[in-house]
């Protein structure tokens, strides 16, 4: 091999390496397309019934997928989808969505209700687990900027014990929340 050939080959290898790296950094798990139908591209759902996944914690999403798969959490759409996922796919999808930037919420919050929601959140010690600003951590979900309808649905489901996969924490928290409290909390959280 001549010197110039070696240089050329080296350059080719280097650029191939870069291409592989770029592909890895932006790797989109194949099954993201299935999620996007409801959760939007990159998990930036615009439909209020379907949660925003962009920026959610990976650990939380993985554990929820596992719960859907194993029947601890039930949903007509999610349960059958989760059944078809391997553990590796669940991790890949969770990691992918966790890396996406959450969208800016356009929901028009009611400031008075949001203020009452903040007071209720303080009283309920929410940030002890959800962290300051409801940014979430590990297996505790990010709730800041989540869809209003989705927050209301989840808190109502916890209260009605339709959702029971959290070891009694949120069912207990939601037990003493009124419908008005839930509305106020959702107004507060959607605006964070």
């Amino acid at each position: 091999m001549t010197f110039s050939c070696r240089v050329l080959a080296g350059l080719l290898m280097a650029s191939a390496g870069l291409a592989v790296q770029a592909q890895t950094a932006d790797a989109v798990p194949p099954k993201v397309a299935v999620c996007a139908a409801c959760h939007g591209p990159q998990g930036k759902s615009t439909q209020p019934a379907y949660p925003i996944l962009a920026g959610q914690t990976s650990r939380y999403m993985y554990l929820e997928l596992r719960d859907f798969q194993e029947g601890r959490r039930a949903n007509d759409l999610m349960s059958p989808i989760a059944v078809g996922l391997t553990r590796d796919e669940m991790h890949e999808l969770s990691d992918y969505f966790a890396k996406q930037r959450p969208p800016v919420q356009s929901f028009a919050t009611d400031p008075a209700k949001a203020r009452l929601g903040k007071l209720k959140a303080d009283e309920t010690l929410c940030t002890m687990c959800h962290l300051g600003g409801f940014a979430g951590q590990n297996e505790i979900p990010r709730v800041a900027g989540q869809h209003y309808d989705y927050i209301v649905k989840q808190l109502s489901d916890f209260k009605a014990r339709k959702r029971t996969n959290d070891a009694g924490n949120m069912t207990s928290v939601a037990n003493t929340l009124s419908a008005q409290d839930i509305e106020n909390l959702a107004n507060y959280l959607v605006g964070l």
Binding site: T124, L125, C129, A167, G168, N169, V173
Partner: peptide, 11 residues
């Protein structure tokens, strides 16, 4: 491996 309080405390 998930939070396991078995309830809640509220101020």
């Amino acid at each position: 491996g998930k939070l396991w309080l078995g309830g809640a405390f509220k101020v």
